[in-house]
Design a binder for these strands. Structure first.
Lengths: 419, 419
DNA sequence: TGATTTATTTTAGCGTCCAAAAAAATGTTG
DNA sequence: CAACATTTTTTTGGACGCTAAAATAAATCA
């Protein structure tokens, strides 16, 4: 069903477009903004005056690069997102540590702070307050006023319920249904949202190359578990209950090996690090502790063994690839994405799995579908998750908070007026 | 990325909202339209004057039911979609027959015309022209001028490429990549679109109950094949290449029985009518012709046999249910829909498959996900596909054609001016 | 018949956009 | 170096859409 439209909507949408354009392309002259957005010079003048007045945008003077080209005419004055307008924070939760990355409105980040925290054993009602304390302490340390932070984005490996703001299940916690958003909002008074790692990587990819990834893309995350970020019609898909796709717990074989989730035959039980390690050390035997985290060094050793010809190791990676291939085939049959991206630390072993992935795709997928899908492995940088979380958080500000010109109330909320 | 907005967009969106509201609720007084849409009485007056002027809407006078209630005050005059504004056509393609359903702008349909056509053997370049001829002949027979038809929607069992307008593969045709949209548009000069059956059923469900189905729903179609219509974030999802989900060809067992598509172990090869029939007649033997259409009477016989205790028949349905259950489990793990709907003639045997479906769901799906999904079997009416196709076609007119007030050009195109 | 009630239309005003004109700020040129 | 050219930005004037409020229309009630 369509929604009512009025001139308010028009301004909001054009302000959002203005901010998003600046965010994507960096500082731009008004004339260029006009070309990029399709808005008339008059409208650009009007909107920019408003945004400057509100302190969201500021004029950074002439563009030296352009004026150097001995051009005639009135020189351009470029506009930029005002870094001082507000701050945001990305929190990334992983096994036994959390990471905090503060950023200003222009997207410039302070060096992320990695903090050890015994997530696995922490009582679930203590987690939120602990994180809140760390945020307070680290903000103070960096000289960032808490009141200047307008929004916090949280990323977690595992299932994130974007609606309740809880973590129903994650390998980082022994407990279930850990409340995160509510305690943080209560203690800090700052709006928070939560999402899973794979979705955040998907956000980072869209931001990096909208043309390539912004249509229909499936981002498969390989690591301690197997995750999936789905980009459908240009936006990250969250599912009905706000829970992102649980690709890792999609069943592969009705009676396969035990999975962390307690059932048998999930994709993860073959293709996550612990699945591979189990296969390499004692087949599908049940005397393997699936809950113990596999250390990175152990995986590297296993990879080395496979690379130097150890057939047991090779078989384990092959099996992981095969199951992953069938999983991707099923995914493609259902979603028909344009592009499938493999990401995460598990892609280090891509060469060891490549052949079996493709063989499974051949067996498990109609040719008609296979031929349209593009595959890609992206080198894994840990900052992708942080970047994606920040991108998502800032876009929310652009579109839904600052697009609505609240005549200064936003900046009052953030505690100061910027000249 | 957001899009530029201007007052044009406002009017277009509100006109669309106006038309959609009338389409959903039937004739309404201006005051009620105001309440339903949220628009002010003044705007309603303005928009309705315009739409009446263009012949899209007309005043049907007082509401007897309301005026009968001895109410004081100026009586309401109700507005309705003008049936004479234009006509549309839904074409449904199935094995060895096509069906034509003409409807006017208000959505009132003529009795659908079912035509025998040897689709399976027809040379692929002849199909479009043959359908065009049938459309011409039947329009004439019903006294509908071809020039009064603004849009044709086509539904087909199998894969429909909404972008190229071709049928890459369908059980109705021996040939592949059958061009449909282009020849029809060329010969008839009327815009056409194509989609698959399951998506059209999904459209019909959304129209029937937006609240229930309009969020995230998966519609599983059981019949000669197994199809899927996905409703994501309120809209039917088409996939990257415009090809809807090929749920039927999602692999279940890497080395399962032969499927119509030529590969082994597809869901369809277990759970479509031919899969069940094969299982009941000669196990998974390969001397079964998967391409031969299973007649409805044969399936009924098999169902009767199972109901009266024939263990071979019972096992076949159980197996079909089990595989379907695992397929649905995988679907839920990926998409996390609110609701899963089973539809199509195959649901007649639901009671025979029920237990095994649920057992498979239990084995193949994390409890956390299962508990949030609602299941439903809708009784199958053949007109669902036609209804859905018409709904989709008319919505396109409401939103994308008539919402843009083209100052009479649309009606000129349709060949006449309506008073 | 006049008061009351309810639906619809008209009026006046506001916000947004845009085209065109004006102004600003620089380079070019004779 | 003053007049002209060029490019960017702002201002102006008008159009369109929406809304609140006033006016009008059309009925019932008493």
């Amino acid at each position: 069903m369509l929604k009512k439209a009025n001139s308010d909507l028009v301004r909001r949408q054009n302000r959002g477009l203005f901010l998003e354009t600046l965010r994507q392309h960096g500082p731009l002259a008004r004339i260029t903004l006009g070309h990029r957005t399709g808005l008339s010079p008059a409208s650009i003048t009007s909107i920019s005056a408003q945004l400057i007045d509100e302190g969201l945008v500021y004029s950074i003077g002439e563009d030296d690069a352009v004026s150097a080209e001995t051009k005639r005419g009135r020189p351009q004055t470029r506009l930029a997102l005002n870094p001082k307008a507000t701050n945001v924070l990305a929190v990334s939760i992983s096994v036994d540590s959390i990471e905090l990355a503060f950023a200003d409105f222009s997207g410039a980040t302070h060096a992320p702070v990695k903090l050890r925290m015994d997530t696995y054993e922490i009582p679930k009602e203590e987690f939120g307050p602990r994180v809140a304390n760390e945020i307070k302490a680290n903000a103070r340390k960096l000289g960032i006023e808490l009141s200047s932070i307008t929004r916090i984005g949280i990323a977690v490996q595992g299932v994130a319920d974007t609606i309740t703001g809880e973590i129903p299940w994650s390998p980082a916690f022994r407990a279930r249904d850990i409340p995160v958003v509510k305690p943080l909002e209560r203690i800090l008074g700052i709006p928070c949202s939560i999402g899973n790692n794979a979705n955040m990587i998907a956000e980072a990819l869209i931001a990096a190359d909208r043309k390539k990834y912004g249509g229909n893309t499936a981002v498969v995350f390989l690591g301690h578990g197997v995750g999936l970020g789905l980009i459908l019609n240009g936006a990250v898909y969250d599912g009905a209950n706000g829970r992102a796709a649980e690709f890792g717990h999609m069943n592969h074989l009705p009676d396969g090996p035990l999975c962390r989730c307690g059932r048998h035959g999930c994709l993860e039980a073959f293709s996550a690090d612990y699945g591979i390690m189990r296969m390499a050390t004692n087949g599908q035997g049940n005397d393997f502790d699936v809950h113990a985290a596999v250390r990175d060094e152990e995986m590297r050793e296993l990879e080395l063994a496979a690379e130097s010809g150890d057939t047991v190791a090779i078989d384990a990676f092959n099996r992981a690839g095969e199951v992953l291939g069938f999983g991707i085939a099923r995914l493609i049959a259902l979603i028909n994405p344009q592009r499938v991206v493999l990401a995460g630390p598990g892609t280090r072993a891509y060469d060891l799995m490549k052949d079996s992935i493709w063989e499974a795709l051949r067996r498990g997928l109609v040719h008609d579908l296979r031929k349209y899908v593009e595959f890609e492995v992206v080198p894994y940088g840990k900052d992708m998750i942080t970047t994606g979380t920040l991108v998502e958080t800032l876009r929310h500000l652009d579109r839904d908070v600052f697009a609505t010109g609240q005549k200064g109330t936003v900046l009052e909320f953030s505690g100061r007026k910027i000249a």
